[in-house]
Design a protein around this nucleic acid. Structure first.
Length: 349
DNA sequence: CGTTTGTCTAGGTAATGGTG
DNA sequence: CACCATTACCTAGACAAACG
């Protein structure tokens, strides 16, 4: 059972100590539609801030499971902080940013961008912290919301943001929490994020990092292997987002035993990977020991017709397994006949 | 401590068996 | 045949135990 499963059982509504100020605000807090409706109503500026703050507090509960302290947090936050509209240019990406470039090219990102465009800005605020010595560079650094920031930036819209005051470790944890909650970070992206935190000495060990953020050390270790893969190997894939946790051991062995071979196989794939699935690329890189993928012939289907009607089909998949389907009703005598036929057939093979 | 190995499970997909 | 609901099967990631 993962964290998310536990979290999903929490009834957030019951955690809200402040009664909603109007019926509209009583609608689900997370439904984009409800949020959007509020956001579009200029008079509800204050309501929206409250809503957003409550939601924020509820999120910290969700992940930490600290129900009591969250309620306190909630009360201390109520009305204490507000969101601000900031110029995207005044904000820089975090040093711990984990988003790969292709995250900003995906279908999902385009959808987010459209949504923000229609709403005239990001309804769900991002979180930033003030930069210590800005000079004439950006004044803020993103804690989370890199995609929303990028979308607003591309659209030339101001970004709705919380400004918070966090040290490096808190920044990292807030960011990690937000990302994991959405569960759309790939294994490799997670690895990159964890590697940065470790390289910068935020945590003394993988295990301590894992327990600080409530993640399994096993998977963290696997993600790190993926993140530290040689560039050439990464390039063999259409996107590093395709990398999977379970491949880490095979990659590690390959690196230790035959790095040169691995890289030359990677180079070969880079020059021609058309039509290869990520899984096939992985198999080609690490050799035949994992999932022997021989050139998979596509399934063939043969139809048997009588008087223009399909009476039977025979389908044979890439591995030679077959499905024979007879579309007409068989008398019991014919059924026995077929059974005998099959009996003889399997005996012979 | 980092990592390996193996098991378990949720979620997705394909196959199957009815039905109109 | 197309369509739908059910079932079987597979996969990725979460977890536990254990190794060096």
């Amino acid at each position: 059972m993962g964290l998310k499963d536990k979290a999903s059982k929490i009834d957030f509504a019951s955690l809200m100590p402040v009664p909603p100020l109007n019926p509209e605000a009583a609608k689900p807090k997370t439904a984009p539609g409800a949020m959007m409706a509020l956001a579009n109503d200029q008079r509800s500026e204050l309501l929206r801030e409250n809503d957003v703050l409550r939601q924020q507090a509820a999120k910290s509960v969700e992940l930490e499971g600290r129900l009591q302290s969250a309620v306190e947090e909630l009360q201390s936050w109520d009305g204490a902080k507000a969101t601000r509209l900031l110029d995207p240019k005044a904000i820089k990406r975090s040093v711990y940013a984990n988003r790969h470039e292709s995250s900003f090219k995906s279908e999902g990102f385009e959808a987010l961008k459209r949504e923000i465009k229609e709403a005239g800005g990001n309804v769900q605020p991002i979180k930033v912290r003030a930069v210590a010595n800005p000079g004439d560079g950006p004044q803020f650094e993103i804690v989370f919301g890199h995609r929303r920031h990028e979308a607003c930036s591309q659209l030339g819209l101001p970004v709705l943001a919380f400004v918070d005051n966090l040290d490096d470790q808190a920044l990292f944890e807030a960011m990690e929490r937000e990302n994991r909650e959405r569960a759309d970070l790939s294994a490799w992206e997670q690895g990159v994020m964890y590697a940065r935190a470790l390289d910068r000495g935020l945590y003394p060990s993988i295990r301590q990092l894992a327990s600080a953020i409530g993640v399994d050390a096993t998977n963290l270790s696997k993600a790190l292997v993926l993140a530290r893969l040689p560039g050439k190997v990464l390039d063999a894939f259409a996107s590093p987002l395709d990398l999977q946790f379970r491949w880490s051991t095979a990659f590690k062995t390959a690196i230790e035993s035959d790095l040169a071979g691995l890289e030359s196989r990677a180079a070969k794939i880079i020059s021609n990977r058309s039509g290869m699935t990520p899984k096939q690329i992985f198999a080609a890189l690490t050799g035949p020991q994992e999932s022997p993928v021989q050139a998979q012939a596509p399934a063939t289907v043969q139809a048997f017709e009588r008087e223009g009607k399909t009476v039977a089909t025979m389908k044979i998949d890439g591995e030679g397994r077959s499905v024979i389907r007879i579309h007409v009703r068989l008398t019991s005598a014919r059924q026995r006949e077929l059974a005998k036929l099959l009996e003889r057939f399997v005996d012979a093979s």
